[in-house]
């Protein structure tokens, strides 16, 4: 969980200002390099050029269209990946035979980079939207399985014993004991899934050309050696990731506020 986002005393404006300090310093350094003929001047772009590219992308409507498509892909993949991940992770945690069968497969498969699958996914599913959703889903699937499994498995034994004492049905055991105690882990998993789904969406758009997403625009910018466009895309991707992260972190903090932790 991105604990650093939790407040501890300082006012919100002050915190935001502090957080912007480092990025701002970097931007200034960058701009200086671009304008004052530093060592790599022609390879940097000035802030003005980036602003120009942003205006250009905004006015042509490219930015919004691309952004919307990328978000749609990310959410679609996230949905499929985390739902199947939740189901598979729960089945593995609760049913031992399933655990035995799937554990070696899961741990072997998740060590293969998604990019390594691309040739085979391209071969089997084409280079269209389906392939993209598969890659994004996979990236969300792996952490969802892992954290669901660990969350459900990591229930303290004494809690389960108490449950036995109260003669809870299996369903009640799940709903009243396992699920609440797995929640922190599920949230960590969700945070990871969201992060990876977003990264994978951009990554796959950089490599699969169909549709029209931020990654496509970025790749096109790279092909044209338009670094200003690339920088705009990186900024939008980064800010979106940041915002999604903040959202999930807030949600999880809200949901887990009964936990006695330092912050």
């Amino acid at each position: 969980m991105s604990a650093a986002l939790r407040s501890y005393g300082a006012g919100l404006p002050a915190r935001i200002a502090l957080g912007l300090l480092v990025p701002l310093a970097l931007i200034l350094l960058w701009d200086h390099q671009a304008r004052h003929g530093g060592e790599h001047a022609f390879a940097f772009v000035s802030a003005a050029q980036v602003a120009g590219a942003l205006r250009e992308l905004w006015q042509s409507g490219d930015l919004l269209t691309a952004y919307g498509n990328s978000l749609r892909n990310a959410f679609g993949g996230l949905f499929w990946g985390s739902v199947t991940g939740l189901a598979v992770g729960s089945a593995m945690a609760l049913l031992r035979p399933v655990d035995w069968v799937l554990t070696p497969l899961y741990h072997g498969l998740r060590q293969v980079p998604l990019l390594g699958w691309l040739p085979l996914i391209g071969l089997w599913f084409g280079s269209g939207d389906l392939s993209k959703v598969i890659v994004v889903s996979l990236s969300a699937f792996y952490p969802a399985v892992l954290y669901t499994y660990e969350g459900l498995k990591g229930v303290e034994a004494r809690m389960l014993e108490v449950g036995q004492l109260y003669r809870l049905t299996p369903w009640q055991t799940f709903w009243r004991i396992r699920w609440p105690s797995a929640l922190p882990s599920l949230f960590t998993g969700l945070l990871q899934s969201v992060a990876f789904a977003w990264i994978a969406t951009i990554g796959v758009e950089l490599l699969f050309p169909t549709g029209f997403g931020l990654g496509t625009v970025m790749q096109h910018g790279q092909l044209q050696a338009r670094l200003d466009i690339v920088v705009v895309c990186i900024a939008v991707v980064g800010l979106t990731g940041f915002a999604i992260n903040l959202l999930v972190a807030r949600l999880s903090r809200h949901a887990l506020r009964w936990r006695p932790v330092r912050t």
């Binding site: 991105s2 650093a4 986002l5 300082a10 915190r15 502090l18 957080g19 912007l20 300090l21 480092v22 990025p23 970097l26 992060a195 977003w198 990264i199 994978a200 951009i202 990554g203 950089l206 990186i234 991707v237 980064g238 800010l239 979106t240 990731g241 940041f242 999604i244 992260n245 903040l246």
Partner: peptide
């Protein structure tokens, strides 16, 4: 506070 936003944003870019 200084580094968190940069950290979170960079983390999200492939």
């Amino acid at each position: 506070r200084l580094f968190d936003p940069l950290f979170q944003a960079l983390r999200q870019v492939p």
